[in-house]
């Protein structure tokens, strides 16, 4: 018997409900943000994070004690948690915000996650989260959380191995021109990159089971954090529309058009 195996791992997977990547983004008429009345799904990088946690359990079996998903967002974010639970998370936390509240920024999210981690009775040994959310593309939460907790961080992971006995993780990171292999001590923050894995489908039996898994509801005040943004959005606008080409019937017409456009022979 390995004496150190007594400490089993608790994994926390923060997930975000984001506008689905397949949706065409439209700026609202007031130019204050985008039309959010469209299909949402779990941020793809977070889906990879959930998948990785579930795969760790499939590999390490009982050495993974718990996988808990957490999200911060409006009531509809519960769908995202159900997806995480259907994929294999054991339980979830929903930090609920009013429907109309502005989306929280990475620093506030990181502070809320820190408060959640501190509240967990068995502690948290590993946080796996997406390297960025595809809606705001900020890519800061994991790093800020590592800073706040003073934990090591392995960002942009494309391969993760955990040695539970040694309380160590070996992570391959995506860097320019290749991979960088690093070894870190637990507790650890891992942010996931695209090549880490391919998330599974939620099977019907697991979707049914997920409906019975516990979701704990919390509010920002329960955690003692303020989720209101500190950045002010001045204006959101679409990139300029691409102007299509036209057909000309003759060379003369082409030359005339070029002249009109101010292009002349040298």
């Amino acid at each position: 018997m390995r004496p150190s195996a007594a400490r089993l791992l608790n994994i926390l997977v923060p997930v975000k409900r984001a506008v689905d990547y397949a949706v065409k983004i439209r700026v609202n008429p007031q130019q204050t943000g985008i039309d959010t009345n469209v299909k949402h799904s779990m941020n793809p990088f977070d889906e990879i994070a959930v998948e990785e946690a579930v795969r760790l359990r499939e590999r390490l079996k009982d050495q993974i004690k718990s996988i808990k998903a957490v999200t911060i967002g409006p009531p509809k974010s519960i769908d995202t948690l159900r997806t995480a639970l259907a994929m294999g998370a054991d339980s979830a936390i929903h930090v609920e915000m009013p429907e109309s509240a502005p989306a929280p920024e990475p620093l506030a999210v990181a502070k809320a996650l820190r408060a959640i981690i501190e509240k967990q009775e068995g502690g948290v040994d590993l946080v796996i989260l997406g390297k960025q959310a595809i809606d705001d593309d900020l890519g800061l939460t994991g790093q800020m959380l590592a800073g706040l907790l003073n934990w090591p961080q392995a960002t942009f992971a494309s391969k993760v191995d955990i040695d539970v006995a040694k309380k160590e993780a070996t992570v391959v990171r995506e860097i320019d021109g290749g991979g960088e292999e690093i070894r870190c001590h637990l507790p650890l923050i891992i942010t996931t990159d695209l090549r880490l894995n391919e998330p599974r489908y939620a099977s019907l039996p697991n979707i049914m089971k997920a409906k019975k898994k516990p979701i704990e509801k919390l509010s920002a005040s329960d955690l003692g954090v303020d989720l209101s943004p500190i950045l002010e959005t001045l204006k959101v606008s679409e990139p300029p529309k691409r102007v299509g080409g036209g057909k000309v019937e003759s060379v003369d017409e082409l030359i005339a058009k070029l002249k009109d456009a101010g292009i002349t022979a040298v």
Binding site: D20, Y21, A22, S41, A86, Y201, A202, S203, L204
Partner: peptide, 18 residues
């Protein structure tokens, strides 16, 4: 899924447009 004589073994439900 919960029928006494199920017509299906199992299945998967898409969770996202992907």
């Amino acid at each position: 899924f919960e029928a006494d004589k199920p017509l299906i073994n199992t299945g998967v439900l898409s969770q996202s447009p992907a």
